[in-house]
Simulated assay, not measured.
Amino acid sequence: MGDYERVRLVTLGGPGVGKSSIWIFLTRLGPQFPAMRRLSIATAHAFLIVYSLGNRESFELAKVFFDEIQEQRGDFQETPIA
């Protein structure tokens, strides 16, 4: 692992909002899609919730993802969420 610490960042968002584009930009290795969102939420160190400004439904879905994080993580107030 070298001289850095691994951080598990979970990206949540509706279809077509740009999650894959963000991951390609950040990693240049291509996106990774979590098979099980519940497990991903439970083990994440941070969250990135993505929505499209041109799609109201994707914004509503972002609120659902935030609610899921709150429900599943007792420490959500100490967990970075953007």
Rank of each mutant, 00 (worst) to 15 (best):
T43F: 00
G74D: 14
R37I: 09
T11S: 01
L61G: 05
E57C: 00
I49S: 09
K63E: 14
T27D: 01
G18T: 13
K63D: 13
T79E: 01
L12I: 15
L39P: 02
E60A: 13
E78R: 02
L26N: 00
F59D: 01
L29W: 01
D3A: 07
R8W: 03
F47G: 13
T43H: 02
W23G: 15
Y51E: 14
L12K: 01
L29N: 05
G2P: 04
G18N: 06
S52I: 08
A62N: 15
G18W: 02
I41M: 12
P15G: 15
G54N: 10
F33Y: 11
L53H: 02
I81S: 15
G54W: 00
P34E: 02
A35N: 05
T79S: 01
G74A: 05
V17C: 02
S40I: 06
H45E: 14
T43W: 00
T27V: 10
A44F: 06
I24N: 14
L53I: 10
G16N: 15
V50Y: 01
R37C: 07
E78H: 00
R6Q: 11
V7H: 10
A35E: 15
R56S: 04
Q32T: 14
D75K: 01
S21F: 08
F47L: 06
V50K: 03
K19F: 08
S52Y: 00
E57L: 06
Y4F: 07
S58I: 06
Y4L: 10
D67G: 06
T43C: 04
Q70R: 12
S21C: 15
S20H: 09
N55D: 15
N55L: 06
T43A: 02
S40T: 12
I41V: 11
E5K: 01
E68N: 06
V64C: 04
V64K: 03
K19T: 14
W23V: 07
A35I: 11
Q77N: 03
Y51W: 09
S52W: 00
R28C: 11
F76I: 05
A46R: 00
F76C: 07
S20D: 13
Y4P: 01
Q32I: 13
S58C: 05
F25P: 06
S20N: 14
L48V: 10
W23C: 10
L9I: 09
V17S: 00
Q72W: 08
D3G: 02
E78V: 04
V7T: 14
E68R: 00
T11M: 14
E68Q: 10
A42Y: 02
R8S: 08
L48C: 12
L39S: 09
P15M: 04
A82F: 12
S52L: 04
K19G: 13
I22S: 10
A46K: 00
G16D: 15
V10F: 03
S52C: 06
L61W: 02
K63L: 11
F59C: 04
A82H: 12
K19C: 14
F65K: 02
R37V: 08
Y51V: 08
F76A: 12
P80Y: 05
N55G: 05
F65Q: 03
R73W: 05
S20P: 11
F33P: 03
S40N: 07
L61N: 09
L9M: 10
D75V: 06
I69C: 12
